[in-house]
Design a binder for these strands. Sequence first.
DNA 1: AGCCAGGTTTGGC
DNA 2: GCCAAACATGGC
Length: 289
Amino acid sequence: MNTTWQDNTLRIEGVALDARLMLIDSAQCFTWREYQGKFYNVLYGSAISVEPRPDGLVLYPVREDLVEAYVHYLDLPRDYGALSGRYAGFPYAVMALERLPGLRVLNQPPWEALVGFILSANNNLSRIRRLCRLLAEHYGEAHEAGGLTLNALPSPEVLSGVSEQALRALGFGYRAPFLVNTARMVAAGFPLGELDRLPYDEAHAELTKLPGVGDKVADCVLLFGCGHSSAFPVDVWVDRLTRAWFPELAQAKSRPALKRASRALFGEDAGLVQQFMFHCARTGLIPVK
DNA sequence: AGCCAGGTTTGGC
DNA sequence: GCCAAACATGGC
């Protein structure tokens, strides 16, 4: 793989990357939108387009000082090929990894992961995306890219000033107070940006202090927004697949017990394999008995 | 029409 | 600790 930056264009070549899978279909992130074959979002204060290429991706426009940020966002430095070897003792894990060669586990800005996954609770994908878009369109800053107007998610400070009633009127339901109260805590100094440097247990304990953030949402934020590759979110699909595919996990008595056993079994990159298996199970790519 | 959605919170043992 | 019920809304 090599990356070159020129004329505000970042070219990533020599690597299998499936933009639609990474940015939309794998349900790690709810803010990307597809338009005429390209993918658009606002990241790090800039609108960006991602164009799929047979041999990689083309990102535009990219300021030179943000190259590293986008490379990190896409988790490009990680050797995903090596994961199959590391998990060689787990045939279903290897199968999932090998069926999705274009998938990466994104390193999103923690605030975006937090907003997205608070909205994900007991919700379906299309509505999670719609609610993210509503937040951006009503309260986020507008940016231009490729003739499109794109809105960023509102900052914690801006969202703090929004009323619960206003969000309920937009269809946020009972998640409305979770969102504004979490925004207030983050704006008031909650150390969201330091969670990547805390041990997993401490970071998880911090996150669950936020309203609307329970065990599972905390794990999603840690995995997708704080670089904690051992975080192992357990939703209905992961519950089913782990019990069906790994006999040693089948007898876990509860979700928390299943999560502990899974983290112990899969080790420091448990969350990465989780994401591959999650997608394979959810889409039926690998049947869950 | 009714069940489900990448769950969390609250209150009861 | 584990369990049940309530919670808003829309997709399918």
